[in-house]
Design a binder for these strands. Structure first.
Lengths: 120, 120
DNA sequence: AGAACATATGAATATATGTTCATATGATGG
DNA sequence: CCATCATATGAACATATATTCATATGTTCT
């Protein structure tokens, strides 16, 4: 249980006790920020398509570009973001880079999102 | 099962069969867009805090502003977005508006995100 | 009716983000 | 060694978005 810190409660416009309780239970700035950053990764149509495509099979960059009908550079930039978030990994084979998923938990979240939208 | 549409496969840089299969299974533009819009709602620290705070109790606008230590206008704008996405609902009581959660499924997703980040 | 208050909203501003273009890097094959 | 190919990346640009400020709306109380 968190210790309550109510010293300043009197200054709020209304319902000081409720505000104090809620403040004590509020997620930290850092957690809120990191969680938002996490959802941001999933908050782009191109990245959603990349992740969904990779959920079935490993693909190289130019194949992903072909599948999504987009430029190689745009895909490469997005893959960089997905790599940074450790959602995809890749192996090099000569000049080609084969990408695949690297986080089953997040993929599961993505599928929940797709399902949710599908059922609207 | 989807019908494959492989007429244009030969034009791709590499691995036409794989690209064709992946294209056939690719989520639609519309679904990808809507899913991204959905995750965008959760991709902001302020909205995460609002939803997490409301997960415990109903609050009025000025209380939320006090809890998050932010301006009333900023909170009101964010609540509008959350209302538009049907993640929160409100009841009017005189001049006050009491907000609460309106989508347990999405709240569950939010909690999964918070947990995921917490376990990193 | 008028003052005070809670909330909503439009406009403006600052910041973040996705794509494109040009180019760099690094591997393969002649 | 040079040309070609797959990929990566920096800069520029356009667009989206969060907050603030000012103000509007609608309610309560005197």
């Amino acid at each position: 249980m968190k210790k309550l810190d109510c010293d300043l409660c009197e200054q709020f416009c209304e319902h000081p006790q409720i505000v104090c309780l809620a403040k004590a239970e509020l997620v930290s700035d850092d957690m809120a920020y990191k969680t938002a950053e996490f959802f941001k990764i999933l908050a782009d149509p191109t990245r959603i398509k990349i992740l969904q495509t990779l959920s079935t099979r490993e693909l190289c960059v130019c194949d992903i570009a072909a599948v999504l009908d987009m430029g190689q550079s745009a895909i490469s930039h997005q893959l960089r973001i997905l790599r940074g978030a450790r959602l995809v990994k890749y192996r090099k084979e000569g000049k080609m880079a084969w990408y695949s998923l690297d986080d089953a938990h997040v993929t599961n979240l993505l599928m929940q999102g797709l399902n949710h939208v599908g059922h609207i």
